[in-house]
Amino acid sequence: MAIETPIAPTRTARERETVTSWRIERLVGAGYAEDAALVLALDREVDLHLAVSLLERGCPPDTALEILF
């Protein structure tokens, strides 16, 4: 069993952080505010492609958040 410490996070924790950072970048790039992007990125139930697609099709970010949650 791997032990996670502040000095050496487990590989899984590092991978999770990398994916979350990537999701935030994609969401901010699509037009979400940083705080909304963080909330969306952390919720793995949120479909990233749908979240981005909504804004690409002209949906306002606030309305998109209501649809996604």
Results as ranks from 00 to 15, higher is better:
residue 19 V to L: 12
residue 58 G to I: 03
residue 24 I to S: 05
residue 34 E to K: 12
residue 37 A to T: 12
residue 4 E to T: 14
residue 28 V to R: 12
residue 31 G to N: 04
residue 19 V to M: 08
residue 51 A to T: 03
residue 3 I to L: 14
residue 27 L to S: 00
residue 50 L to Y: 02
residue 35 D to E: 09
residue 41 A to L: 03
residue 43 D to E: 13
residue 24 I to M: 14
residue 28 V to F: 08
residue 58 G to M: 07
residue 32 Y to N: 03
residue 13 A to Y: 05
residue 33 A to C: 02
residue 64 A to D: 01
residue 35 D to I: 04
residue 28 V to Y: 05
residue 25 E to S: 13
residue 53 S to A: 13
residue 63 T to Y: 09
residue 23 R to G: 01
residue 4 E to R: 15
residue 28 V to A: 08
residue 50 L to A: 11
residue 19 V to F: 04
residue 61 P to F: 02
residue 45 E to C: 01
residue 25 E to C: 08
residue 51 A to E: 06
residue 9 P to L: 06
residue 13 A to F: 02
residue 34 E to W: 10
residue 35 D to N: 08
residue 61 P to Y: 06
residue 6 P to S: 05
residue 13 A to W: 01
residue 21 S to H: 11
residue 31 G to R: 07
residue 30 A to C: 04
residue 48 L to R: 10
residue 49 H to D: 14
residue 17 E to V: 04
residue 50 L to V: 14
residue 33 A to F: 07
residue 45 E to M: 08
residue 42 L to E: 12
residue 25 E to G: 04
residue 25 E to R: 15
residue 57 R to Y: 00
residue 36 A to Q: 12
residue 6 P to L: 06
residue 51 A to Y: 02
residue 22 W to R: 09
residue 4 E to W: 13
residue 43 D to F: 11
residue 65 L to F: 04
residue 63 T to R: 12
residue 9 P to H: 11
residue 44 R to D: 15
residue 2 A to I: 10
residue 54 L to F: 10
residue 54 L to G: 03
residue 57 R to W: 01
residue 63 T to N: 14
residue 29 G to H: 11
residue 42 L to K: 15
residue 22 W to V: 01
residue 53 S to G: 13
residue 34 E to R: 14
residue 9 P to W: 06
residue 46 V to F: 05
residue 15 E to A: 09
residue 26 R to A: 12
residue 51 A to M: 00
residue 33 A to R: 14
residue 48 L to I: 13
residue 11 R to P: 05
residue 39 V to C: 02
residue 13 A to K: 13
residue 34 E to Q: 11
residue 27 L to G: 00
residue 24 I to V: 15
residue 27 L to W: 00
residue 35 D to K: 10
residue 49 H to I: 03
residue 31 G to L: 00
residue 28 V to H: 06
residue 6 P to E: 10
residue 49 H to R: 11
residue 43 D to K: 06
